[in-house]
């Protein structure tokens, strides 16, 4: 009796183990192929520049920081110190602007049954799908007329006006889940909407606000098209613009330095992701953020 059961069990377990192993082998090789370029980039950044494109392995026998030193001052007179500072200023203000303005709009859409809400909500959703290219030229003319070209203002001011509707949508979804009793209790205690928003809704929504903040940072940090159009003098360049200038000007020399700076430019993004990984992956699952 028992031997029969064990035999039957073993009969099922063997294919199970084989199947699992098979899946893991497939996944690990896929992951390896996908990540190899990133690891290779890292290895190349730490390798003496002469070997930059010749060596394909990930093994770096004598790691050096020489590429980082050279790359840091390779573009323009200001060097990457200024570009990183610029990128941090722009991305930091974009985060503040997005979170503030999108949370305000989301509170109205999610918690205030005001007249016309459905209409405005429909329009807001519509703007998510809108390609930026239909706005690009008139926005440029507008910001040019205001004297904002070659400043950070065109990259920052729109964020304070909740133009990244995706974040409004994300926060609306979250604010709706907060039980109505909580805010009703606030109303009965005589709180106005500003107080309810600040004292109840925002503290209860820290996860969603963090998700919006992290994605704002990453998108703004990676943004290329808008800085390319608006920033004209080198001292105002953000990191992506400086990198693209670097790759076009470096000719056939200093690849090591180029790789070092490219790697460095990815670190804030990866850092933000690793810090808020769980929140970000949940955010993607529910709303389709990139």
């Amino acid at each position: 009796m028992t031997t029969l059961a064990v035999a039957r069990r073993r009969h099922r377990i063997v294919p199970y183990v084989a199947q699992r192993t098979f899946i893991h082998v497939g996944l690990v090789s896929a992951a390896f192929v996908m990540v190899y370029p990133l690891l290779w980039m890292t290895a190349t950044a730490f390798r003496p520049s002469e070997q930059a494109l010749i060596e394909d392995s990930l093994w770096v026998p004598e790691p050096t920081l020489e590429n980082f030193v050279q790359g840091w001052s390779a573009v323009g007179q200001s060097g990457f110190g200024v570009f990183f500072l610029n990128s941090f200023i722009v991305a930091g203000l974009a985060v503040i602007g997005n979170v503030l303005s999108c949370a305000l709009a989301a509170y109205a859409f999610a918690r205030l049954p005001f007249r016309g809400r459905k209409f405005w909500f429909g329009l807001m959703i519509g703007t998510i799908m809108l390609p930026i290219h239909v706005l690009l030229i008139p926005q440029y003319l507008l910001f040019n007329a205001l004297g904002w070209v070659d400043t950070f203002l065109p990259l920052i001011v729109p964020k304070f006006l909740a133009t990244e509707a995706f974040f409004v949508f994300l926060l609306v979804q979250f604010f709706r889940l907060i039980p109505r009793e909580i805010t009703e209790a606030g109303r009965i205690d005589g709180c106005g909407h500003p107080r309810i928003f600040l004292r109840l809704i925002l503290p209860l929504s820290v996860p969603a606000l963090t998700t919006a903040a992290a994605f704002s940072f990453i998108w703004s940090w990676n943004d290329f098209l808008q800085p390319l159009i608006y920033l004209t003098s080198q001292s105002n360049y953000t990191v992506p613009i400086a990198l693209s200038l670097f790759v076009d000007s470096s000719g056939t020399s200093n690849y090591g330095a180029l790789f070092a700076m490219s790697l460095l430019s990815l670190i804030p993004v990866i850092g933000f992701f690793l810090a808020f990984q769980k929140l970000l992956l949940d955010g993607i699952s529910t709303t389709g953020l990139k």
């Binding site: 305000l104 109205a108 205030l112 049954p113 006006l161």
Partner: peptide, 20 residues
């Protein structure tokens, strides 16, 4: 309150989305 909270978005919607 709804329109007050919506003010930044409305400005952005008309000023740098719809009009452009």
């Amino acid at each position: 309150a709804g329109y007050a909270f919506l003010t930044p978005w409305l400005l952005g919607f008309f000023g740098i989305t719809l009009l452009p």
